[in-house]
Design a protein around this nucleic acid. Structure first.
Lengths: 107, 107
DNA sequence: CCCCTTGTTCGATAATCTTCGATGTGTTCG
DNA sequence: CGAACACATCGAAGATTATCGAACAAGGGG
């Protein structure tokens, strides 16, 4: 079961569709998710660069938080950096086909 | 061809994913789209009631406009009322599986 | 131990979004 | 014609979001 509510990530059962869609409804965050899908996983600095986002570090941190709190991505600490991954399985389980449709759609 | 740009509805080729997701990323608008999917088509007054939205008429009109400008629904005039329909075919063509995934997902 | 890198948090400002009531426009009906 | 209805639009108030720089915490080297 591993119902590990760590305070940072919403439980899979608590994912709200409107919130997920709202989080994805931003060009920058959408680019972030696309880049993360390509990379599989990445630390923040690399992801921001890979997504081609020219914004301050703090702003990217904010967007990453929005995605995390919506349940779209997961962050784990590794040394001094945070490794981000998409929560593909959980999203697929709760909103079947949604993430795939987003990732397969034209920019 | 029928590239009928009527000023009210974006052309199918101009639909922007982030904008569509942002439009859907609101509980009220999501409920509106769900209700419209059930009804097939509807005038505004009935749709608002069917979606269970308690808000002023002008506010609903605003949300309907957001959905329309994102390319999610289509409005045609019939007498004194506007008949709204989902732009299912166009959305499916441009963002395959997206709308279905949204409609099939739990509220 | 110092310092650089990574990333978060805070506080402020600006932009955008939501909401409403009032008003306007076109339609239908008596 | 005049009242009633269906919506849209306008203008304003309030809430939320985006953005930045500064300050902060934790690691990893040297």
């Amino acid at each position: 079961m591993t119902a590990t509510t760590d305070g940072l990530h919403p439980d899979a059962s608590e994912l709200r569709l409107a919130r997920v869609l709202a989080a994805l409804g931003d060009e920058g965050r959408l680019a972030t998710v696309r880049a993360l899908a390509r990379l599989g996983e990445s630390d923040c600095t690399r992801l921001q660069a890979d997504a081609g986002l020219e914004m301050s570090r703090s702003t990217f941190s904010h967007h990453q938080k929005v995605l995390r709190e919506a349940g779209i991505l997961h962050a784990r600490v590794q040394g001094s950096q945070r490794i981000l991954t998409l929560r593909r399985a959980e999203l697929q389980a709760r909103f079947p086909g949604l993430l795939d449709a987003v990732l397969d759609s034209p920019a």
